[in-house]
């Protein structure tokens, strides 16, 4: 089931790089994702188009990482972005940034999809997915090398191997921490700690403030 329509329009494939906010009146180009989402919450269609161009590639990218199948990933991407429009009214900036709200929605949708599809599959399949997590890294590297991506990758390299494997198997592979423990053959408690410590180290490296 799909409601894709073919368009002849030529649309730039790469989203503009994030701009720094200035305290003055902001043009559409300079508006932050948070501001755009607030406008979308008031039913502003043109703001939604701008918002789409800011977030669509990362939404698609993360869904594609988890699901791997391009057609299915496009379908879920479409569902998520329509949900962004529908539920923009419920976004609460007190609880985090707009980008995070959107990414979380995308990631959870992909996870739901992969877990329901994978429910009956066996361990061999899991190992195959693990290998593909790595293979996909290389593909993605060739396709695009944005500054932001390079920064995150550099920071990932600062994690211990176990931290990095735990974090990426969960986030990009879509595994539960129990499955990660099984794949890496380490105790559950260790996986929990590695995921938390890994994210904290990543946060410090990236300079996230919430």
């Amino acid at each position: 089931m799909t409601f894709l329509e073919v368009s002849d329009e030529i649309i730039p494939l790469v989203a503009p790089l994030r701009r720094t906010l200035r305290p003055s009146v902001l043009s559409d180009e300079q508006a932050s994702v948070d501001e755009l989402l607030n406008r979308v919450a008031r039913g502003d269609g043109p703001a939604f188009e701008l918002l789409y161009d800011r977030v669509a590639n990362s939404v698609y990218g993360v869904i594609r990482r988890v699901l791997r199948d391009p057609a299915q990933s496009e379908e879920v991407t479409q569902e998520v972005l329509i949900e962004v429009w529908r539920f923009a009214t419920r976004f609460d900036s007190e609880r985090g940034s707009a980008t995070t709200w959107i990414h979380t929605m995308a990631h959870r949708r992909a996870i739901d999809r992969v877990r329901s599809a994978q429910a009956s599959h066996d361990r061999d399949e899991k190992v195959a997915r693990r290998d593909q997590v790595t293979a996909y890294d290389e593909v993605a590297e060739r396709v695009e090398a944005r500054l932001e991506q390079q920064h995150v990758r550099r920071c990932l390299e600062h994690l211990t191997d176990l931290q990095r494997e735990s974090v990426t198997l969960a986030y990009y592979g879509g595994y539960t921490y129990r499955e990660v423990a099984e794949i890496l053959d380490i105790p559950l408690g260790t996986v929990k700690t590695r995921m938390r410590d890994g994210l904290i180290r990543l946060r410090d490296c990236l300079g996230v403030t919430s």
């Binding site: 494939l13 790469v14 989203a15 590639n57 990362s58 939404v59 698609y60 990218g61 993360v62 594609r64 990482r65 985090g96 940034s97 980008t99 995070t100 990414h103 979380t104 995308a106 990631h107 993605a140 396709v143 695009e144 944005r146 932001e148 991506q149 920064h151 995150v152 990758r153 974090v167 990426t168 986030y171 990009y172 994210l199 990543l202 946060r203 990236l206 996230v208 919430s210």
Partner: peptide, 13 residues
């Protein structure tokens, strides 16, 4: 917020 940057890093056209 940190995990969300892993999504940014995965961006694909």
């Amino acid at each position: 917020e940190t995990a969300s940057q892993l999504a940014s890093a995965a961006a694909l056209p």
